[in-house]
């Protein structure tokens, strides 16, 4: 199904400019054309189709659903909704407060917020087309697990102690209300007809595409540069053995770098093709996507430094563990 993009890239990168398929410039250009054209077409078609289906799902619904749920189930649902609910990272503070003031425990809210940047429809599509279904499935399972365990740990440590005062008060009031009455069902959500769904899906496609196309170009560009200009065996020789220290090093390198999932997946593809072990790659990429300094600075307005530091170290440890376990398991996958 994706062969057409390979053939187009053959033609545009090798035949037209007369570059050799064994030359560095030729392979870099080929990688760039093949991946960027494939990703753009996939994004346009699939975002539209997915948006059509989930048009009526939004953060308000999720909040109403999660409010007053049983805890154990809550982490799973929080993380699951985090993966499928559309929401822009610039809304993470209002979403955090909206959930909190509905009395939802901090851990469940954080399951939602931690999973959300790691897993979304664009990331899953890219993984499927570039790295195959097995890798995608593992990525999704790991992403959700990190979200759930992160939430559980935060609640076990009673993280609500370290909220900013107004947020802590909102949580208390919310929980008092939640026990008073059964949670208010989403009664003001109108049913959508096909026309409205189409409109939503069209706007969503344009909006997401407008936001991510630059990331695709940057990510594929970096991937192509790696492909074409890093000596063939360099990565494999130096890091190919899955040396234990390479995983925490990759995470530490990844955290200050910020990218969203769309930009980083083409880089992952290129790193893996060059012999970087899958676990190390995954650890690096998840840390660039999930933890970013701008996001932490925003969260500072609702969380005290202690809680922020806790979340930060928790992610650091989680991604390192993921990398190690994945590297150990790779021979069996």
């Amino acid at each position: 199904m994706f062969e057409i993009f390979t053939r187009m890239a053959d033609w545009l990168a090798y035949e037209l400019p007369g570059l050799s398929p064994t030359s560095k410039a030729g392979t870099a250009l080929h990688f760039f054309i093949e991946d960027s054209s494939k990703i753009f077409v996939l994004l346009l078609v699939m975002i539209y189709l997915i948006a059509l289906v989930r048009a009526s799902l939004n953060v308000e619904r999720v909040r109403n659903y999660l409010a007053g749920r049983h805890r154990g189930f809550g982490y799973l649902m929080g993380s699951g909704f985090g993966a499928i609910t559309p929401f822009c990272s610039c809304s993470s503070i209002p979403v955090f407060l909206g959930f909190t003031s509905a009395g939802i425990p901090v851990g469940i809210t954080m399951s939602f917020l931690l999973t959300s940047p790691l897993i979304n429809e664009v990331a899953v599509l890219l993984l499927l087309s570039l790295l195959g279904w097995k890798f995608t499935l593992l990525y999704v399972l790991i992403g959700m697990t990190i979200g759930m365990i992160g939430g559980l740990v935060l609640d076990a440590l009673k993280a609500e102690r370290w909220l900013q005062d107004f947020a802590a008060r909102a949580l208390e009031q919310g929980q008092a209300r939640a026990t008073d009455s059964d949670n208010s069902a989403d009664n003001h959500q109108p049913v959508m007809n096909l026309q409205q769904r189409h409109q939503f899906a069209r706007d969503e496609t344009l909006e997401i595409f407008g936001r991510v196309w630059k990331w695709v170009i940057i990510g594929v560009g970096l991937g192509a540069a790696l492909h074409g200009f890093v000596p063939d065996n360099w990565i494999e020789q130096h890091l190919g053995g899955g040396q234990w220290w390479s995983v925490p090093a990759a995470v530490l390198l990844g955290i200050p770098l910020y990218s969203n999932a769309t930009g980083v997946i083409p880089v992952m593809e290129s790193l893996i093709n060059h012999g970087l072990p899958a676990g190390t790659t995954l650890a690096f990429c998840m840390s660039t996507v999930a933890a970013s300094f701008p996001e932490f600075i925003l969260l500072k307005r609702v969380m005290r430094l202690r809680l922020l530091a806790l979340v930060f170290f928790m992610l650091l440890i989680a991604f390192t563990l993921v990398g190690w376990v994945f590297n150990l398991l790779t021979p069996f996958i």
Partner: peptide, 13 residues
């Protein structure tokens, strides 16, 4: 201000 935004019960900005 996050606090004011919360009072209007807004989650999407």
């Amino acid at each position: 201000s996050p606090e004011v935004i919360m009072q209007y019960q807004v989650m999407r900005t």
